[in-house]
Design a protein around this nucleic acid. Structure first.
Length: 460
RNA sequence: GACCCUUUCAUCUAGUGGCCAAGGAUAUUGCGUUUUCAACGCAAAAACAGAGGUUCAAAUCCUUUAGGGGUCGCCA
């Protein structure tokens, strides 16, 4: 059975790039009817925070990617790691290193000066003498000293480094706590991972982890290293490039399905298809089709997708979502009419809410330019006549309102704009927005007339 | 600095030696539709990083240069 995972360290919010790798992992599991596990990498007690962990879990909940089984916390598994460290020590596959931090820094500086790649020189690998006083040793694992360490990456192809590139890295700190590359390998193996999908910033960690797999006799999973997401200039994505926190997209009025659709197409594709429902993603996703190269982050397409999913959403769903954006249409008998009139104009829930408020709330002020343009000439007289006709006809439907408009155009022998422009400014305060007949049907005759009269009084 | 990854329109991408004088999508521009703005429809413009090879044939294979990214922790 396919088992994948996402393993964030709880040091901050869920990053948009993290969500994409998580999505790839999740889809791989779903596609194969497997399991998607969540593991919190909290071995560094100093940097972890409970809030960060909760924020990450919350983000997953928002996008609807659920994990299987219990969340695994590395901080609760120290005994287990300790046992493996002791085992390696006993088998002679790991050893104590008494090199001080100062000595290490010194060594690195020398290597840099000689233009070499910095690495531990293995000086305590076969040490049998008396250990120096006052130094708590770290534990290092014995990495192979010759040959190459290679593996097949599902995205990049064969990846191979010279054994000299991988030094005897630390698996337990002086205080006894285990380090990242050690625990990751153990957990991935013990949790039964078949496919490890992660960012390609981990490409160099993989050979190290393979050293651990081999030392402990674990089978290797398949590795997939996904290229990073950069900003539009091709540089590393940072906060300056816009929101990187997943939850920020919620407050900006994006739907999770739009965000996931956007992210799945960043570095992956299925022919020419752009719109993917969750079911379609699951059906077509294969990590082997992930692109090798980094993609640049550009929100234009997300906006387009979001508009698409808003148009597609049911009234019921939108009513629920809009509550967070200051619009409550619950129980409003004209809710569906209102949404129909505004849906196509809202690219985000924020702008959709604005559109709706524009209809629901009478204009407090009138756009100066629009008012000037719309209220020249006969406008006032035409509006007054129109108001009278409305009072007489008492239309209730969009169609009925429309025929009153047609009627005045005919009677006065004027173009549609002569009534349309001033009427629009009266009702909405500016010259843009939904269809007038729709708006009037929503407002009703008396509110429409009220707004017309107010506009005439204010502008006229 | 060393090592590694990567390079198709502005952006996301299709493309695995002939179907490619390179296709789709977004963004842009124009036209149509509309009382307006959107939405929608149609159209335009827009790319194989450069240089050398291999081959009858190269976006696709090789070499090399350049750009971008990553890694070199008792961080994860």
């Amino acid at each position: 059975m396919t088992v994948t995972r996402f393993a964030p360290s709880p040091t901050g919010y869920l990053h948009i790039g993290g969500l994409r790798t998580a999505l790839f992992s999740w889809l791989t599991a779903q596609h194969n009817n497997g399991e998607f596990l969540l593991r919190i990498e909290d071995t560094d007690m100093a940097r972890n925070s409970e809030e960060a962990k909760d924020a990450i879990l919350k983000a997953f909940e928002w996008v609807g990617m659920s994990h299987d089984g219990e969340v695994v916390y590395q901080s609760k598994r120290f005994d287990l790691y300790r046992a493996y460290i002791d085992q390696l020590l006993a088998e002679g596959k790991a050893y104590k290193c008494y090199m001080s931090k100062d000595e290490l820094t010194c060594l690195r500086e020398e290597q840099m000066a000689r233009k070499e790649r910095t690495r531990y020189d293995g000086r305590y690998r076969d040490f049998t003498g008396t250990p120096p006083e006052g130094i708590e040793p770290v534990i290092r694992i014995k990495a192979p000293q010759e040959g190459r360490i290679s593996f097949v990456d599902g995205v990049k192809g064969v990846f191979s480094v010279d054994a000299s590139e991988v030094d005897d890295f630390v698996i337990a700190r002086a205080d006894g706590s285990p380090t990242y590359n050690f625990v990751v390998a153990i957990d991935d193996a013990l949790m039964g991972l078949t496919d490890v999908i992660r960012g390609d910033d981990h490409l160099y960690n993989t050979p190290k982890q393979i050293v651990v797999y081999n030392a402990l006799g674990f089978d290797l999973p398949n590795f997939y290293h996904v290229a990073m997401i950069n900003n539009e200039q091709g540089k590393k994505l940072s906060k300056r490039d816009g929101a990187t926190d997943v939850m920020a997209y919620k407050s900006m009025g994006y739907l999770p399905e739009a965000l996931l659709n956007f992210l799945v197409r960043l570095g992956w594709s299925h022919g020419d298809q752009e719109i993917f429902s969750l079911a379609e993603m699951i059906e077509h996703f294969d990590p082997k089709n992930i692109n090798k190269s980094a993609s640049n982050y550009n929100l234009d397409k997300l906006l387009w997708l979001n508009a698409h999913y808003i148009k597609e959403a049911s009234d019921e769903k939108l009513i629920g979502l809009l509550k967070d954006f200051g619009v409550d249409l619950e129980g409003n008998e004209k809710a569906s009419m209102i949404l129909n009139a505004t849906k196509e104009r809202g690219k985000t829930l924020v702008s959709l809410a604005e559109q709706i408020k524009l209809i629901l709330d009478a204009p407090q002020s009138y756009d100066e330019k629009s008012a000037k343009k719309a209220f020249k000439g006969e406008a006032k007289a035409i509006l007054n006549a129109f108001a009278d006709m409305l009072a007489l006809a008492q239309p209730t439907t969009k169609e009925a309102f429309h025929s009153v408009m047609e009627k005045i155009v005919e009677e006065k022998a004027i173009g549609f704009g002569k009534i349309g422009m001033p009427l629009r400014v009266s009702l909405m305060g500016s010259m843009t927005g939904s269809g007038l007949d729709e708006i009037m049907a929503i407002l009703g005759v008396s509110e429409t007339i009220k707004r017309i009269e107010k506009a005439i009084a204010t502008i006229g």
